Amino acid sequence: MPRLRRNRGMTALIQAQGLTIQRPGGHETVLHGVDFRIASGEIVTVVGPNGSGKSSLVRALLGHMPLAAGRVARKPGLRIGYVPQRVLVDTTIPMTVRRFLSLPRRVGDRDAAQALARTGVEGVEARQLTQLSGGQFQRVLLARALLHDPELLVLDEPTQGLDQPGIVAFYKLIEEVRRQTGAAVLMVSHDLLVVMRASDRVICLNGHVCCEGTPQHVSSAPEYRALFGAEAEGTLALYRHHHDHDHDLHHHHHAGAH
């Protein structure tokens, strides 16, 4: 994986070593011994079945979740734009797109208009959030995340609820944003078709790192095929999640690969 070796010489925006997370009470380990890094300009996608610890990893990397073991280092002053998995909008309280973009930090009209234009929803400032389609709302969330010139854009399952054309369009937009801004992108995904093709590196997670590398490497790895089913071999066009592999077997395999 020459791309990975090349990235080791680049400055990491976030780097984690031995990251271990437990559920409250400490009776169940969510993630164990995860090493992670993301460098400037990379698109890194984290995939894995439900309950594999994807969102926990993101929250820990952002400093929003305590660690049972390990450490996370972030570049000092790192500017992060975050698109959360779910945003609950109170339908009883009127909230325009323009007002939403100024929460929690106020932004000027010109900056707001430019951010909306960049994400393909120009002119919606006066619309109520509740009037937006799912795709429009995701683009408004992305515009809000881009307002303060992030060095790292973090998206937690941003295409949930979108149809396939909407997913394709959204990820093309993410690629364009990366190209224009140079921001790194860390994406948690439940969709393996488009996201993986856009990624420089894919991390397959299931309580630990099952496998990691370029999309081509991961899609042909035995750990990935065991996790997502035999039909995953040689293809990125995969939607069904199968979880039938042996943790210890693949954890040892992964440890030996480093």
Rank of each mutant, 00 (worst) to 15 (best):
R8C: 11
L13E: 10
I14M: 01
Q15K: 14
Q15R: 13
Q17S: 15
Q17V: 13
G18D: 03
L19T: 07
Q22D: 14
E28K: 09
T29K: 10
L31G: 02
G33V: 02
G33C: 05
G33L: 08
D35K: 03
R37C: 04
R37G: 12
G41K: 02
I43W: 05
T45V: 14
T45G: 04
V46S: 02
V47K: 03
V47S: 06
G51R: 07
L57S: 07
V58K: 02
R59C: 01
A60R: 05
P66G: 05
P66K: 03
A68E: 11
A68V: 04
K75Y: 04
K75G: 00
G77A: 01
I80G: 04
I80V: 12
Y82E: 00
P84L: 10
V87A: 08
V87S: 12
L88T: 11
L88P: 01
D90Q: 10
D90F: 03
T91E: 11
I93D: 06
T96I: 07
R99H: 15
F100I: 01
F100M: 06
L101E: 08
S102D: 04
L103A: 06
L103P: 01
R105M: 07
R106N: 09
D111H: 12
A113R: 11
A113E: 10
Q114V: 07
V124F: 11
A126S: 15
Q131L: 00
G135A: 12
Q136I: 05
F137R: 11
F137G: 00
V140H: 05
L142I: 03
L142F: 05
L147H: 00
H148N: 14
E151Q: 14
L152W: 03
L153K: 08
V154G: 12
V154E: 05
Q160S: 12
G161V: 06
G161W: 05
D163Q: 05
Q164G: 01
P165S: 05
I167K: 14
V168Y: 14
F170T: 06
L173S: 08
I174V: 15
E176I: 01
V177I: 15
Q180E: 15
L186M: 06
M187R: 10
V194D: 00
S199N: 11
R201G: 08
N206R: 13
N206M: 12
N206F: 04
N206Y: 09
C210K: 13
C210G: 09
C211V: 00
E212H: 00
E212V: 04
E212T: 03
L227K: 13
A230V: 01
E231L: 09
E233R: 13
G234I: 13
D246L: 01
D248R: 13
L249G: 06
H250P: 00
H250G: 06
H251A: 15
H252G: 13
H253Y: 09
A255Y: 01
A257V: 08
A257R: 10
H258A: 07
